[in-house]
Design a protein around this nucleic acid. Structure first.
Lengths: 116, 116
DNA sequence: GGCACCTGCAAAACTTCCGTTGCAGGTGCC
DNA sequence: GGCACCTGCAACGGAAGTTTTGCAGGTGCC
């Protein structure tokens, strides 16, 4: 995933998702390889409920991926993996994304003549 | 400013600052060159009070810079400029920033033996 | 003086985010 | 049955972010 492929709204979502210490630590922890929820919670020393909330956000933003698997003993395990992404954060990239913000689109709809 | 030069905490601040449609539009508008507050507010069609709040955040994160100048007529004008920045947002970059989160540092202080 | 412009800020209302708590379901094993 | 694991989620209270409203100061010009 590259920043140039994102709409303004998606970029906002990704940035707000990554602007949280817990979620940065989660990404860092998943760099070692896939992990299931309960074990990840123990490694990060946070509650499982809290971790699930953050994982849901990361998944909604397309930054991690989940696969539900059955362990050899038959237990359901949810494994999370990082989705590779490379987002370039420069004034130029932001300017390119700005026109595709739904905010901006709504404004232009109301005032079509001021485009350009 | 490069992402590799930022601490985890600074990165969080930059990301949360940029995860807002208004502030992305402000950066985009300042790409055309420096601008003073009231005129920028008219261009963006938002209230001056609201713009000031967002400009303060952008300045606190080191993304824009302000200079107070006197116009030829003697009016005080506050001009804002973009600070060039290039932040690389990848899992690797986040993993590099994670150990410098104050959150993480506090955790390691409490439990020194689990480092590594 | 009155108007048009420039600046600043803080209180209040509203919305969203965060983290905990407590509950539900399931499996295998002793 | 009881215990140790795995999963899920919703509700609540408190913290933080967002936006409006209203006020203050200043300049120059008619």
């Amino acid at each position: 995933m590259k920043s140039s492929e994102l709409t303004g709204d998606e970029l906002v979502q990704v940035l707000s998702t990554l602007s949280n210490p817990h979620r940065i630590r989660i990404i860092a922890a998943l760099m070692d390889g896939r992990e299931y929820v309960s074990r990840l919670a123990r490694r990060l020393e946070i509650s499982r409920a809290l971790l699930q909330v953050h994982l849901r956000k990361l998944e909604a933003a397309g930054l991690v991926e989940a696969t539900l698997e059955l362990s050899p003993e038959g237990k359901a395990m949810k494994y999370y993996t990082i989705c590779q992404f490379a987002i370039e954060l420069t004034p130029q990239a932001l300017a390119a994304a700005a026109p595709t913000l739904s905010y901006e689109e709504a404004r232009l709809r109301d005032d079509p003549q001021e485009q350009g």
